[in-house]
Design a protein around this nucleic acid. Structure first.
Lengths: 336, 336
DNA sequence: CTGTTAGCGCATTCAA
DNA sequence: TTGAATGCGCTAACAG
């Protein structure tokens, strides 16, 4: 009734358990006819090797812990999909968890990963605590999208500053001087770097930075909508908005529409992170595209290479992937 | 250097391994001071119980295999997120795999789940083979979104026929008589049921069914765009399109825009499956909303209940969740 | 209340 | 080329 083990297989095929082990694991010598007999029995019994027992024996698994902020956000979903695909093509699989950006959840996930004896971890970190703990426990860990523990593990990031510089520069080039910036939570590395890109573009153009144009908000759509409203109320001279994530952009668009203002004609908008709806809008949303699929693939490959190459032997590497400014119709000269 | 085990803990705390086991697993009697001593040692050593060894001993894990078609599709991503959340709140976690709608991939995932000794499986099935194998192996399995093995396991579905009936009825009520239907791959239960809803709404309105208005395509965005183009070319009398998934709707919208036709004014459109961009469009896309979060939560709860209640004791249950027609601006009387 | 013993299913010595 | 023996880390009788 319960699932067959090598012992059942051994009895069925009339050989010892060791021999069965050799054929199912594909290691060691086994005479061809014996091998065939065992394989036959395996098929008959519907035998599937017990990965748990195997893992205990090998003291590691083929599982990789993947921790992202929010599966509902298409950016993270695509990232996870890319990680999964790369992992599977090399015989690994993924234990996926959402942190929701909460460090308690992140800690819980880290514990889960440790307990599961995963081969490694890929995470979009929330606090450096979890990363550090995992690294200290001897696990291979890769930080992705954000880096909170530089020098302690590999990281795969995008050029946030360059992307933000390009986006802001594009608006400035069109003649905008009062540009609202939707940033999400401060303190997150992506936010900090995108802010830096925005500021340095302003400096390059000789336009003064006005902190009033950078309202505080969370990363949520609704808060982005709210602060967009406040921004437009308090600063009617704002002619463009740079929303530094797909969700923030969504909030901004919702609010602009709610007020009956029209994108492009009344207000230019640039986003960060290209997601499908931005192409569907009319006009399409100009945005800084991230190489999301490459981000996930690179992280997974880095991890797998570390595993093959014997862990954290060499020093940590950091990949910075380039972004691309995708011009669509949502940006034009002000006051048109 | 390697991770501490109960043996290390036992030595550190000066007790036997069984006692350590009792305190870390929280089962059995342990004197308070001894307990404290062990917990102390655990903290000092950074001990985390080995879930693999535990699983081997218990002959089951706290992992649930989750198989969906495509993480990149917001419907599945949201579904997976809901499953994950419910699972985690009850101490389980998720091994997530993408089938991409391919039965080979599904088989591979089923094998992985079996090998991983998951407590149960939630899947959006591709072929009945995998479900059957899993059920035969004694696993608790829940089919979600589609049911391919009726009577063999629980299923959580939405009222596809009712939703399609409502959507089509809405268009008919506005006066449309020639309604294109984008269905995706035939043979998928969702497609079949949505087609049935479309047809019965036509019957109810006394409008003849024309198979020419139901072009063949896959579920991909690009193919949806292509067949939308062909449909509009061959049948200029079509005044409305019903796209039965969010991705198909995306393709239809892209093609309509490419031709410079305008939604609502030139052509009404109704979708199935409410995703964020449909609210962002102007006009917003009228659609049949699925209770996606509830779908995932219900599936997870059903699974967990089965596990608690001792497996597949009682007969399979099927949940049919209601859909809601969300009226937005993309539908109007024809020829306006 | 605590320790001893045995074994979950598998892979790996080591002998034969 | 095959089999016997051992142990991965943990839990569950059972005896003390």
């Amino acid at each position: 009734m319960s699932r067959p083990t090598i012992t059942d297989l051994a009895r069925e095929a009339g050989v010892s358990r060791s021999t069965v082990s050799r054929v199912v694991s594909g290691r060691g010598y086994v005479a061809a006819p014996v091998r065939a007999r065992v394989q036959d029995a395996a098929l008959r019994l519907g035998y599937v090797p017990d990965g748990v027992a195997r893992s205990l024996r090998h003291r590691t698994t083929r599982a990789v812990g993947v921790l992202i902020s929010d599966l509902g956000n298409p950016f993270y979903a695509e990232l996870a999909a890319a990680v999964d695909q790369t992992l599977r093509s090399r015989g690994y699989h993924m234990i996926l968890a959402n942190s929701g950006g909460l460090d308690d959840e992140e800690d819980a996930a880290a514990t889960l990963f440790q307990a599961s004896r995963v081969a490694g971890v890929i995470l979009a970190p929330v606090s450096k605590r979890a990363t550090r703990r995992l690294v200290d426990a001897g696990l291979v860990v890769i930080e992705v999208d954000r880096q909170l523990a530089p020098g302690e593990c590999d990281a795969v990031l995008v050029d946030n500053m360059g992307g933000a510089f390009a986006a802001t520069g594009h608006l400035l080039g069109l003649g905008h001087r009062r540009i609202g910036l939707l940033l999400g939570e401060r303190g997150w590395q992506t936010a900090t770097e995108r802010l830096a890109g925005y500021r340095s573009a302003l400096v390059a153009a000789g336009v003064p930075f006005d902190r009033e144009l950078v309202p505080r908000s969370s990363f949520s759509r609704d808060e982005a909508a709210r602060v967009t409203g406040e921004l437009l109320d308090r600063h009617p001279d704002v002619t463009a908005i740079f929303a530094t994530s797909n969700v923030l952009a969504e909030g901004a668009v919702v609010e602009i529409q709610r007020r009956g203002r029209r994108i492009l004609t009344d207000l230019s908008i640039v986003a960060f992170d290209d997601v499908p709806w931005m192409r569907l809008m009319q006009p399409g949303i100009t945005t800084v595209a991230q190489p999301t699929e490459e981000l996930g693939r690179t992280a997974a490959e880095l991890l797998l290479d570390r595993l093959a190459g014997g862990g954290a032997s060499n020093r940590p590497v950091v990949h910075r992937l380039a972004t691309t400014l995708v011009l669509r119709g949502s940006t034009a000269a002000p006051g048109r």
